[in-house]
Amino acid sequence: MTDPLFEFLCRLGDNTLVLGHRVSEWCGVAPVLEEDIALANTALDLIGQTTMWLNLAGEVEGAGRDADALAFRRDVWDFRNLLLVEQPNGDFGQTMMRQFLFDAWHVLYLTELEKSSDARVAAIAEKSLKEARYHLDRASETVIGLGDGTEESNARMQAALDRLWPYVGEMFDSDAVDMDMVAKGIAPDPGTLRPGFDATVNPVLRKATLTRPESDFAHRGGRSGARHSEHLGHLLTQMQWLQRAYPDATW
């Protein structure tokens, strides 16, 4: 069986890798210059976090793989990111809603990881948390602004929320890996974070005049790697192409 710590670190690193990639797709085509620049900052933060998590994962694994090897040379079934972050950008509203839902969870999770018994995990969490807090602030205000804005922007934000809500539940799943992390004091049980998430998300949705979907049905299979969506394969096809096509090259 794979080392649960490796598995856990891949989950963190793959989340930021895949989301950072998605956000970077906006570069040059955002609705307004200021947003273009802000989105690039978010993507850069996430790529930086990826490097830290996946390098540590490689170190823990001890098989000589670094962050690049893990990012560019694994196939879909080895990825451990949440289904939420691999969802396509959609319109700007969907991108910001996905960011908001992820950030709301990410901030809570990182806050707990700052107290990790593993000093390396705690250090990365501490650096990431500062960035995640700003992402959450910016995404919240954008969700509120667009939800409260015009009839059209409200309708688009509601559609984005409805589209993405089924991917929220997976963030609070716990499995054997999580239990192992809890036992070692490395990470919290994600299930315990749900009340905090609701406390973050509900007021923002209220201010945004958006209706939280009634059903909490959740798609699963990202963080376990059991069943990703079709989108991840296409993302990797682009992201990994050069490394796959020229395996003997260094860049």
Binding site: A30, P31, V32, E35, D91, F92, G93, T142, I144, G145, L146, D148, G149, T150, E152, S153, N154, R156
Partner: peptide, 12 residues
Amino acid sequence: EGAWVREGLLAH
């Protein structure tokens, strides 16, 4: 495609 975003944030 960004028009609704610029208009929405301004309306808010």
